[in-house]
């Protein structure tokens, strides 16, 4: 049975710590691309970066939603359950995390938990697997964590992402947080950012 499993973190404690610091750094400095040094080889279409984030943050207390492509690959759900213990849910509103391997076809953000005014933390974090954090749509953002402005490029993304970010910001302190994950790098667009320019 174990031969069917792809590699997970070699040293779970230290690898998770290192990945977490990258994710935390990305979240604290929105739009900044931070390298993810821990490498794993998960089943397709789960990306290496997506898998590293999953191994770092998921466990039995975090229901996870998978997009159509990921849900169709049964070994992805098996890999996630085996290595993280996270329950896979089909209702996006129940998910603490969602992995989107095909961000261009991301469901509306409102489909996920947005938190409440009393508990804005009861919201989903969306992990968008992207091919590149160097090319693609350019987004300039400002807000907490950003000195003046920060410009991020990524592809592929939901085509209407700028409008979605504006809508998400208007919900603050409710809303979803986005992690954009390439194979070896991560960037974040938490709900606190304000989009100032796109091109």
């Amino acid at each position: 049975m174990t031969t069917a499993l792809a590699l997970a973190f070699v040293d779970p404690g230290l690898s998770a710590q290192s990945s977490f610091r990258s994710i935390m750094d990305a979240m604290a400095r929105p739009g900044t691309v931070v390298s993810l040094s821990e490498q794993v080889a998960p089943p397709h279409p789960l990306s290496r970066g997506g898998a590293a984030v999953a191994l770092t943050l998921f466990d039995q207390d975090t229901p996870v939603w998978l997009d159509t492509a990921l849900a169709a690959a049964s070994d992805v759900a098996f890999w996630l359950r085996f290595h993280t213990g996270a329950p896979i849910v089909t209702d996006p509103r129940q998910a603490a995390f969602a992995i989107l391997s095909d961000p261009e076809r991301a469901p509306p953000f409102e489909a996920f938990a947005l938190g409440t005014l009393e508990y804005p933390d009861r919201s989903a974090t969306l992990i968008l697997q992207v091919d590149s954090l160097e090319r693609g749509l350019s987004l300039s953002v400002t807000g907490p964590g950003v000195k003046d402005r920060s410009t991020l490029r990524a592809m592929p993304l939901p085509p209407d992402l700028p409008q979605r970010l504006v809508t998400n910001r208007a919900l603050f302190p409710r809303g979803v947080d986005l992690l954009l994950v390439a194979n070896t790098a991560v960037a974040a667009l938490p709900r606190s950012i304000t989009l100032i320019e796109e091109s």
Binding site: D121, G145, D177
Partner: peptide, 11 residues
């Protein structure tokens, strides 16, 4: 760690 990320997202 998950709580820290949420805390950063909602300063």
């Amino acid at each position: 760690r998950r709580a820290i990320l949420k805390a950063i997202a909602v300063p």
